[in-house]
Nucleic acid binder design. Structure first.
Lengths: 254, 254
DNA sequence: ACAGCGCACATTGTACACAACCCGTTGCGC
DNA sequence: GCGCAACGGGTTGTGTACAATGTGCGCTGT
């Protein structure tokens, strides 16, 4: 019960997600991965002390990592009440998807203009990895890699603010997929990713944007955002029982 | 030299920027304002200890505030070297403006759909404040209020991710304006803001978007982003001397 | 005199200790 | 029996001490 990774002090990279940054980057990346791969369920409490013990660092580091995660929207930071894995509501999911459509359209157009040959090759490699993960049955890694594909695309668009925003949107999208996906197995279909790369390489902006928009359609057609599937938001679960008054504490009509 | 604000412990709001949050919100807001109103020049070093002494809090709080500011792009956090006020390069400025066009278009369309009567009234009030500031000659406050107008518009669009992104973009835009503005006095012309509100209130999406795009044109037509006015980015200043190789350390050709 | 090295100071990074706060429980009073 | 209030455990918020890193100055040797 008291297990702990090796102190990861100067260890160049720990596991897979190791970046070449300082400790909080490592902690950040690990928690991030764990959430996106659904090893941490939405609503799970993220105790600072427990995490600190697990990673062998002090609460200071954990706190910074949680703060970054909160900025990206995958963690909810409740004052004096601790951090929990975010569980986006249906409405929040819709907002994220709306914003993503917007950003993906722009990124696609820019990528058509600016993507280099090396970047296109990297993108193809990522699609391969993604396909491997899914065929290996590693759903979590698949979701993550699919997200990283879209992030790499944003980098090819060569616009720093958009990259940063896209990182946040992709994170939240992955969380939403993990939470709301209906049983359907073909997730972020990698075929569409491949076609998209082809269109970008051919510098066909109209086609690329079209493909991307259809891709977006497919993604949220796979989600059941209409009926809430076992939400842990009590207000949402029992909303049909509540009187729809505006402010104040809502009360059940018996 | 050792002056210090009163400890601002439970003081409901300190000065003008006081939010109803905990201490770091206050510190954050003060530094934020100081930067946007150009009381802190780009490149200025932000020593943690000095700021802590000024605000009467420990470095912990300052550190969090700086972290937030760094996330929004108005502060640059160099590992082990401290924080400085960001000084966006011309290229960075262009990227911010590109992203903003994108976001403002979307926000305008959404605001046309969702803006409530109260919000429109608030927006009009903000334009009034802005006009007052400029007529009073308070350029800094004018820039800030103009930014807050665009932020309020984002809130009327009712999309959380867009609001957050817009906050970051507006901050950086204000910094860019403060840095690159050519002497021209009519800044974010409030007339255009008023017309924009009228169009939104009339629910005329096409007109509103048109006005917003022209507004964006006016903003960066007031900047001289072509000639770098004494940039302190050495790489930019000496770029014509550098060999344009991709990776590795660039070296001068003598 | 100038280049190179090394030390000392200043500043940031991290850990830890104490204080404040929230929540669940227990006990009392009605 | 029920509601309310005080208490206690546990978790987070903040301040501070120490360690690590970067920077600048002075020293020395050529």
């Amino acid at each position: 019960m008291n297990e702990q990774l090796q102190p990861l002090k100067k260890q160049p990279r720990a596991g897979k997600a190791g970046r070449s940054g300082t400790q909080d980057d490592i902690v950040y990346a690990h928690i991030f991965e764990a959430i996106l791969e659904q090893r941490l369920a939405p609503g799970t409490k993220l105790s600072e002390e427990a995490l600190g013990e697990i990673f062998g660092v002090s609460r200071t580091i954990i706190r910074r990592a949680l703060s970054r995660l909160a900025h990206e929207g995958v963690v909810l930071l409740r004052p004096n009440r601790g951090a929990v894995v975010a569980s986006p509501s249906v409405e929040e999911a819709r907002q994220v998807f709306l914003a993503r459509r917007l950003v993906e359209r722009a990124i696609t157009e820019l990528a058509v203009q600016h993507a280099s040959t090396e970047e296109l090759a990297e993108l193809r490699q990522m699609v391969n990895d993604e396909r491997d993960s899914f065929s290996r049955g590693d759903r979590g890694a698949g979701i993550r890699l699919s997200g990283e594909f879209h992030l790499k695309l944003a980098e090819a668009a060569k616009n720093a603010p958009l990259i940063s925003f896209q990182r946040s949107l992709v994170s939240q999208t992955s969380l939403i997929i993990a939470q709301y996906e209906s049983g359907n197995r073909s997730h972020c279909s990698y075929d569409e990713h491949t076609q998209l790369i082809d269109a970008i390489e051919a510098r066909d902006s109209a086609l690329a944007v079209n493909l991307m928009m259809h891709h977006m359609d497919h993604i949220d057609s796979k989600l059941n955002l209409d009926e809430e599937s076992a939400s842990d938001d009590l207000h949402a679960v029992f909303s049909h029982l509540l009187q729809t008054k505006k402010p104040g504490r809502s009360s059940i009509k018996l």
